[in-house]
Simulated scan of single mutants.
Amino acid sequence: MPRDLALNSLGFAKPPSETRVVVAMSGGVDSSVVAAMLAEEGYDVVGVTLQLYDHGAALAKKGACCAGRDIHDARRVAETMGFPHYVLDYENTFREAVIEEFADAYLAGATPVPCIRCNERVKFKDLLATAKDLEADCMATGHY
């Protein structure tokens, strides 16, 4: 008879140290806290941040999502907590999947919300594929 293993806090029947979690790190407080909490619980955390547009130009923009200072903030949290952090260049993907359609819709008189398209077409879809490539058991974010 197989031995029953207790479930860890993420619902897997193995110790946290054997459970890889890819954390989508925007550089904000929510995703940083999630990554830190998982690391403190002993999970095998891998931080991933998407660079969605020109990194150099974004450094000067306050509040820019997924570029500029946010990347540095996410990297600093990963360094402090002792887990790896990767920045993935998604500039072309973002432009093709989000920005071009946004611009076309805006010029046609609509009021599109690019964050919705980004979440469904870039962040969650592509990040989940990246998590699978990194042999993660699951993916975590600070928002959903």
Score class of each variant (00 low, 15 high):
Lys61Phe: 05
Arg76Ser: 14
Lys61Gly: 02
Phe83Thr: 09
Arg95His: 15
Gly82Met: 14
Gly82Trp: 10
Tyr106Trp: 13
Leu107Asp: 08
Glu79Lys: 12
Arg95Trp: 14
Leu59Ile: 06
Pro114Met: 01
Ala108Ile: 03
Arg76Thr: 15
Cys65Gly: 03
Asp126Gln: 02
Tyr86Ala: 07
His72Thr: 14
Ala74Glu: 11
Cys66Gly: 02
Ile116Cys: 05
Thr80Trp: 05
Val77Asp: 03
Ala74Thr: 04
Asp104Thr: 13
Leu107Gln: 09
Gly68Thr: 00
Ala67Phe: 08
Ala103Pro: 00
Leu88Thr: 04
Gly109Thr: 13
Cys118Lys: 02
Gly68Phe: 01
Arg121His: 00
Ile71Gly: 06
Pro112Asp: 07
Thr93Ile: 12
Lys61Glu: 15
Pro114Thr: 01
Gly109His: 10
Thr93Cys: 08
Arg121Leu: 07
Arg75Glu: 14
Lys62Asp: 12
Phe94Cys: 04
Lys62Arg: 02
Asp126Trp: 05
Asn119Phe: 05
Ile116Phe: 07
Glu101Gly: 15
Ala105Arg: 15
Arg117His: 09
Tyr106Ala: 11
Thr93Gly: 06
Tyr106Cys: 06
His72Ser: 10
Ile116His: 07
Asp73Trp: 04
Val122Gln: 00
Gly82Ala: 03
Lys123Glu: 01
Ala74Ser: 00
Thr93Asn: 10
Pro114Arg: 03
Asp126Val: 01
Glu120Ala: 03
Glu101Met: 00
Arg121Gly: 04
Val113Cys: 12
Tyr106Glu: 08
Ala97His: 12
Glu96Leu: 12
Glu91Met: 13
